[in-house]
Amino acid sequence: MSNHSQAHPAHLQHHFVDSDQQFDAAKMGMWVFIVNEILFFGGLFCAYIVFRAWYPDLFTMAATKLDTTMGAINTVVLIGSSLSVAMAIRAAQLNKTKWIKINLLITITLACVFLVIKYFEYSHKMHDGIFPGATLYTYEGIDHPLAHVFFSIYYVMTGIHAIHIIVGIGLMIWIYIRAKRNEFGSEYYTPVEMVGLYWHLVDVIWIFLFPLLYLIE
């Protein structure tokens, strides 16, 4: 703790006393942000629960239109990306800049794979006339007057999740560029850890979306 005898490290912002305080504050701020995200998605889950409790038949019927295989593959893809981002943090902690970059690239690739699969799912449905909202919805294969409501919920939940994925890709590119500039190491890897936390959260939300949307029998 004899920091005062040496110059402040470059990453330390002026209003913090030391790196530990800065790291702890950042991490706590991130967790408070995660609280936000949970309540944000919570609103959607609440709508889901209310409508599923009202119309269980609708959900059983409509869920058959969702492709379980693709959903399951995407789940595994996201788990893999969570693993690689955790590896990236580990690499940062151990001063292995090269491995930060490799693991981030793996994560970005897996995130893109997720989006591509999602794109195929969406386009397949839209081809059948399954659009979000009653205005555009034309599919007649589901014999329920409120079929469009299920798909509204489906699209808004997975859509907002996908937006989170896109934001995550952007963040990881930013982290990748900074890692390339050798900014991270065992002394300072706060941004890597924060983006990691964000990415795991996106994974956790998908872990709940998958069984609730795809696995209704």
């Binding site: 967790w31 995660i34 609280v35 949970i38 309540l39 919570g42 889950f45």
Partner: peptide
């Protein structure tokens, strides 16, 4: 606690 709290409020 933050995580559990958020879930509790949900």
């Amino acid at each position: 606690m933050l995580l559990i709290g958020a879930f509790a409020f949900f």
